[in-house]
Simulated assay, not measured.
Amino acid sequence: MSADPLEWLTSLEGVPSVYASTRDGIDVMLRDRGLRRTSPEMTAESLLRGAHASAVLEGSSSSLAEIRAGDGDEVAQASVRVSTELLSLSPTLNRSPLQAFARIHALAGGTQVPTEQLGRPRNEDAAARLRDLSALLLAPTSAPALLVAALVHADLVTAAPFASHNGIVARAAERLVLIARGVDEKSLVVPEAGHLALRAEYESNLRGYREGGASGVHAWLLYAAEAFAAGAEASPLVRAADQG
């Protein structure tokens, strides 16, 4: 038996090629559209756009302009709280994924969730799912980081391990994997915006991941590569380069 728990995913039809192509596209965007000119402000803008997209997917009706002005609804505020601390959680994810997931949920929950529920799985089954996911992240693998990020995202959404805000946690964790595994260390890609742009496909493929067995996982992975490409196009780098 292979020691790589994700090896079977990298052998699924179409997965290796689509993830190699998507990673190449992201690398080209980051390199050719001005990586040397990036600033903390551009990272902050990417995180803000991601917070808005994630909040909308979670049910928020706040606009990006409202969120930028600090006037978003409670869901938007939860998403923004997560975004402000996400970069600092990169070392934590590499060392202790459980601690990173708990902190993301605590940030999202804020004062809206009872203190005893913040960062804590809702039951033992949820705790077991989180432990399994943490072990998966700590295991050696040759799987592309983008694939790992997609898997973390879908597993957290479908397991719903926390009492609230599971979608926000999942999308933040996906972005965090991209940061921590070196795909996008400055967090300039906006994967949440990619999912929002493909919302119907996003929601249907999550249902497939939850209910469709191996074929559902396969379909999710192929979809996620497309969403990552759309997230790269949503980067503030793209607009800056186009305007330059």
Rank of each mutant, 00 (worst) to 15 (best):
Q112Y: 15
T141W: 01
R122Q: 15
E116N: 09
E124T: 10
A143N: 07
A127F: 02
G119M: 06
S90P: 11
E116G: 00
L137G: 08
S134L: 06
Q99C: 05
N123R: 12
L107M: 07
R122E: 13
P144K: 11
S96P: 02
A139H: 09
R122G: 11
T141R: 02
D125P: 00
R122K: 15
Q117V: 12
T115S: 13
L133G: 01
P121C: 10
A108E: 08
R129I: 04
D132F: 05
G109K: 00
A127M: 07
R129N: 12
T92V: 15
T92G: 03
S90I: 00
P91L: 09
A139Y: 04
L107H: 01
R131W: 02
H105A: 03
N94S: 14
R95L: 08
Q99D: 12
A126R: 02
T111A: 12
L137I: 07
T92P: 06
P91I: 07
L133M: 08
L98Y: 01
L133T: 09
A100E: 04
N123D: 15
G119W: 09
A108T: 04
T111H: 08
P140M: 05
L130Q: 06
L136H: 11
G109Q: 00
R95G: 01
A106Q: 14
D125C: 09
A100Y: 04
L138A: 13
S134Y: 05
P114H: 12
A139I: 07
S90Y: 05
P140I: 11
P91W: 09
G119D: 09
L133W: 03
A139W: 05
A139N: 07
T92E: 11
F101M: 04
T111D: 13
S142E: 10
A100S: 14
A102D: 09
N123S: 12
A102G: 13
L118G: 04
P97N: 01
L118R: 11
T115G: 10
A106F: 04
V113H: 06
N94F: 00
P91C: 13
L118W: 04
P91R: 08
L136Y: 12
R103A: 11
R103G: 00
A108G: 03
D132R: 13
G110I: 10
P97D: 04
L98H: 07
